[in-house]
Computed example of a mutant assay.
Amino acid sequence: MSRAHDCSHCALAKLCLPFSLDDASLETLSAKIKDQTSLKKRDILYKKGQTFSSLYAVKSGAFKASIYVKDQEIITHFFLPGEIIGFEGIHAKHYATTTIALNDSTVCEINFDDLKHLAQTNPLMQDHLFSLMSHDIAGAVYTHPHHEALSQLAAFLVQLSTRFQRRGLSATRFELPMTRQDIANHLGLALETVSRLMSKLQAQKIIKTELRLLTIISLEKLSALI
């Protein structure tokens, strides 16, 4: 299901593409956004190999981007509200992952050619677009496979904390949109390892978990593990 969207009324505007636009440019961008589309949990936003045409701004919910190697899922990214999905497709002109809604979610779709034209005529927009692309690349740094497992998990949780805080939410108490299996598939660890390390962090009173609700008791101690 989809409906029209007005960027000027979006609470996530400062995190998303309209960040640097004046009223006239914002109106132009709003007109070029195809629609606000709703997806159910496990719905596919796009598939690996699909022709690249658009970027997607997450309005609500969360997504995971995955590839499969010998039937093993490898999750390359998680996306939260205010973040942009699809940069991976710019170079090769096709999407490099299959991206799926982790829960009921909504996205705003904008054609990349339209966005590129707008960026060429608006230097602030162009700078912000480059900044968003840089954040997308930097997001993969903490998943380096040679890092110690506990360090990887700690870095992942700290980065999630920062991302939630940017959205005006609590940095120390938030709902994890992904399962522990998803976290394991993202960090290249076994599910048992993730569960054991989460239990260890709880025993050390660094975090507390209640189902998917995560409370970071000591952000300082968690950061020190990275």
Rank of each mutant, 00 (worst) to 15 (best):
C7T: 06
S8C: 06
K14D: 05
F19Q: 05
L21R: 11
D22E: 13
D23S: 15
S25G: 09
E27T: 12
D35Q: 15
Q36R: 15
R42C: 10
I44G: 06
L45K: 04
Y46A: 08
K48N: 14
Q50G: 08
A57F: 08
A62V: 01
A62E: 02
A65M: 09
S66G: 13
D71L: 05
I74T: 04
T76Y: 12
I84K: 09
G86M: 02
G89M: 05
H94F: 03
T98I: 13
N103Y: 03
C108M: 15
F112H: 13
K116D: 06
A119M: 07
T121K: 05
N122R: 01
D127C: 09
S131N: 13
M133W: 02
H135M: 09
I137N: 12
Y142R: 14
H144R: 13
H146G: 07
V158A: 07
Q159W: 05
Q159L: 12
R166V: 04
R167V: 00
L169M: 02
S170H: 03
A171W: 01
M178E: 09
T179Y: 01
R180M: 05
Q181Y: 00
N185T: 00
L187T: 04
L189S: 00
V194W: 01
M198E: 05
M198D: 01
L201I: 05
K205E: 12
I206D: 05
I207K: 07
T209I: 06
T209V: 11
E210Y: 03
I216M: 02
S218L: 11
L219W: 00
L219E: 04
L222I: 13
A224V: 00
